[in-house]
């Protein structure tokens, strides 16, 4: 009798419960079956009619049944709650997030920082020098004879007859060689000036990085190795390069380094003037006259020096065709970097 009731109730629940899809139906189910006056509670009423010796058996049966229904109810309730929670959120999450404004470093700074980091990793310190420079440091100590045509290579702004705006960062070499103990291994970044008309390809000021290594037994082979290591780090390990003899008053032997044009990969294009090569730096062994001018004996120590233009390299790196855009500081330009 009671067995039948339980099994009837069980099949009824198995029919109803899976169909419940919202909280209202669930609440109706709870009231009908699980409430104090619900159908499951009424089973305990029936228990009164069961003979005494069978009472514990049936009591146990009803308990188990009730527990199982309650478990099913709770799990359904939990799953309904979580799904209804997501349905209830009424926010358009496609709205833009609250972004922080983007700042930028100037592309020339980025190039310079990249160069610095490579040289620092190669054991170079960083030194700065003045932009207002005297003739002695800018020219004379660097082996530019007073009336040498080499002075024409660098049209100069004069502040006084013997005070100039430095035409290169090389005078800082003189300052460090005079003032710091050997061995010396430094780079010298900074702004330099040339009295040249402003055009797409040239500006009256630009930025350079000079490098210097003075010690016992420094050789041309050391210089080449340093430059190749730098170039492969900076331009990529797959570049081709070449060294050409060149001339600077303050180095001997002197060289210029070309790398394959990174636009045309050496085939020849407008950027490399159809040569396939781009000149990226000048260098050489510190001239004995310069060592002597800085108080060092060229028989005892030797050194190498190099220099490169940051703006020109930035032009090439970022595919910019007019150098003037660097200093216009148009936000539409700056925000691209």
């Amino acid at each position: 009798m009671l067995d039948q009731k339980i099994s009837e109730l069980q099949s009824e629940i198995e029919r109803i419960l899976p169909a419940i899809a919202d909280n209202d139906a669930l609440e109706k189910f709870r009231i009908e079956f699980l409430s104090r006056s619900g159908k499951l509670a009424s089973l305990y009423e029936e228990l009164k009619a069961v003979p005494g010796d069978q009472k514990p058996v049936y009591g146990q049966k009803i308990n188990t049944f009730k527990k199982s229904v309650e478990t099913q109810f709770e799990s359904l309730k939990a799953s309904l709650q979580s799904s209804s929670a997501s349905q209830k959120i009424d926010i358009d999450i496609t709205l833009p997030g609250r972004e922080r404004p983007k700042g930028t470093r100037h592309p020339i700074t980025q190039t310079l920082e990249h160069m610095k980091s490579i040289f620092v990793s190669m054991g170079f310190g960083i030194v700065y020098g003045p932009e207002i420079e005297d003739d002695y440091h800018n020219f004379e100590a660097l082996n530019f004879a007073p009336n040498h045509p080499a002075r024409d290579m660098q049209d100069t702004f004069f502040v006084k007859d013997d005070i100039v705006l430095r035409t290169h960062t090389t005078p800082v070499q003189v300052r460090v060689m005079k003032n710091r103990p050997l061995p010396l291994r430094v780079i010298m970044p900074g702004r330099v000036y040339r009295n040249e008309a402003v055009s797409a390809r040239s500006n009256y000021f630009f930025h350079q990085v000079d490098g210097l290594y003075v010690d016992k037994h420094v050789t041309f082979a050391d210089l080449k190795g340093t430059l190749v290591t730098f170039a492969k780090n900076f331009y990529g390990s797959d570049i081709q390069y070449r060294f050409r003899p060149s001339y600077f008053p303050f180095t001997e032997p002197s060289l210029e380094m070309d790398i394959t044009c990174f636009l045309c990969k050496g085939k020849g294009c407008r950027i490399c003037k159809h040569t396939g090569w781009l000149e990226v730096l000048g260098a050489g062994m510190v001239h004995p006259n310069v060592l002597r001018n800085c108080g060092h004996d060229p028989e005892k120590v030797s050194g190498y020096a190099f220099g490169m233009g940051v703006d020109r390299i930035s032009l090439l790196r970022y595919g910019i065709d007019d150098i003037r855009i660097f200093f216009e500081n148009d936000l539409r330009f700056l925000n691209q970097f």
Binding site: V120, G123, P183, D215, D222, G225, F243
Partner: peptide, 16 residues
């Protein structure tokens, strides 16, 4: 110039 070695080892120097 291309026949001269590219010497890539050097005495390490620690900068301040």
């Amino acid at each position: 110039y291309d026949n001269i070695e590219n010497k890539t080892s050097s005495e390490v120097m620690f900068s301040a």
